[in-house]
Design a protein around this nucleic acid. Sequence first.
DNA 1: AGCTTACTTGACCACGGGGTCAAATTCCGT
DNA 2: ACGGAATTTGACCCCGTGGTCAAGTAAGCT
Lengths: 210, 210
Amino acid sequence: MRADAQRNAEKLRTAAAELFHERGLHAPLKEIARRAGVSHGTLYNLFGSREALINEVVTDLAAARLGQIAEHALAHDDAWDGFAYYVEALCELQITDPAISDVVTGRYPGAESLMVLCERSRASGTRIIERAQQAGVLRPDFTREDLLFLLGANAVLARATKDTAPDSWRRSVAFTLDGLRTEAAHHPLPPAALTAPQFYEVMGALADTR
Amino acid sequence: MRADAQRNAEKLRTAAAELFHERGLHAPLKEIARRAGVSHGTLYNLFGSREALINEVVTDLAAARLGQIAEHALAHDDAWDGFAYYVEALCELQITDPAISDVVTGRYPGAESLMVLCERSRASGTRIIERAQQAGVLRPDFTREDLLFLLGANAVLARATKDTAPDSWRRSVAFTLDGLRTEAAHHPLPPAALTAPQFYEVMGALADTR
DNA sequence: AGCTTACTTGACCACGGGGTCAAATTCCGT
DNA sequence: ACGGAATTTGACCCCGTGGTCAAGTAAGCT
C-alpha cells in the first residue's frame, strides 16, 4: 500500500469514527469522505463497503464498551441493581453513542462481525437477566428478546429527545424497570416465543426505522 | 368543477385513504397518484399539498376513532381498567392504522387540523390519567407527556414487529403498565417538565424517526 | 359540431442517497 | 528525473422523494 493511500485510509477512518459516533451506522458514506477531505471514490476504493469501514472503526470499540458494561453489571452484589445498571447503561449509550447503540439493537444486519458482537452482547444480557431472576427480583417472564425490544424503543425516544430534553429517557426507563420487578407482575403476559430468524427479522425491521 | 376532475379527486381520495392507512401519513404522493391511476401532476392540481389530502381523508376518521376510544375508556367503572384499555387501544391502533397512529403521536406537524385533533386527543388522555390517579391506582408522577412517549416508543416497536410477531407489542405494553400502578413506584423519578414548545419539538423529532 | 376553457399529462427541476469507472494525478523505485 | 504502476478524482449512473409547468387533451356549453 502506498504511503498516500495509507494516509487517506487513516483520514477516512477518523472521519468515519466521528460520523458514526455522531449519527449512527447509517451516516452517508459521501459525507464521511467529505469530512475526510477525500473523494468518495477513494472511500469505495480503500474500503469497498460500509461494512468494512464499520469493522475497522466501530467493532472493537463497541466490543470494549459493551463488555465493560456487562462486567460492571455483574460486579454489583445486588442482582437487581446489576440488572438495572445494565439496562440504564445501555440506554444511556444510545444517546452518547448512536453507533454502539446500532450495534446493540442489531441495526446493521450487513456486517458479520457486528452480528457476532451483537450475539455476544445478548449472551451477557441473558446472564444478567438470569441472575436477577434466580435472585427472585426480576419477573420470571422477562426474556432477552424483551430486553432488546426495550432497548429498541428507548433508542427512538432517546434520539428524539436528546436535543430538547436529554434526560427524558430516564423517566420511561424508570417506569419500565418498576414494571419488571417480580412483585409488579399482575397478569400472565401474552406469549413471546420468537424463533431466532423471526427475531432477526424484527430487529432488521427496527433498523429500517432508523 | 368538471365531472372528470371530480372523478379523479375521488379516485385520489380513495387511493390516499388506502395508502395512508397502510403506510402512514408519509406515504409518497407519487405513489398515491400511481395507485389512483392518475398523473402526480393531477394530484398537486386537485389538492395542492399533502396536508389538504390528509384533511379530506384522515382527519374525520381519526377524530371518530380517537373520540370513541376515549369515551370507551371513561365508560369503564374501574379507573385502572379504563386507563389500561386506553393505552392498549391506542397502541393497537398503531399497527392497525398507521395513519391514525401518526395523528396521535403528532407525527404530522404540517397539518393544522391534525394538530387540533392531536391536542383534543391529549386532553382526553389527561382526563383518563387524572381519573386513574385520583382513584389512587395510577402512580401520581405519570404525566400525559409520559403517555405520549410511551405511545411513540410503541409505534416503532409495533411497526417493526407487525409482520413477524404482530402481538409482541402487547408484552412490552404489559410490562410498562405494570410499572405504572401506584404500588409499583419505587424511587422518585427524574424530572419531566417539558414546556409546550419543547414537547412539540420532541414530537417533531420523533416524527423524523418515522 | 365547434370552440373555449378546465383539466391532465409527463418531462423536467432539485435534492440526497448508493455505487462505478475512465482519465488524471501522484508516488516511488530505478 | 523519469516512467510505470498505484491511487485519486469527479463526472456519471441508478433510485426515490417533493414539486412545477408548458403543451396536449377532452368536457361540455352554445
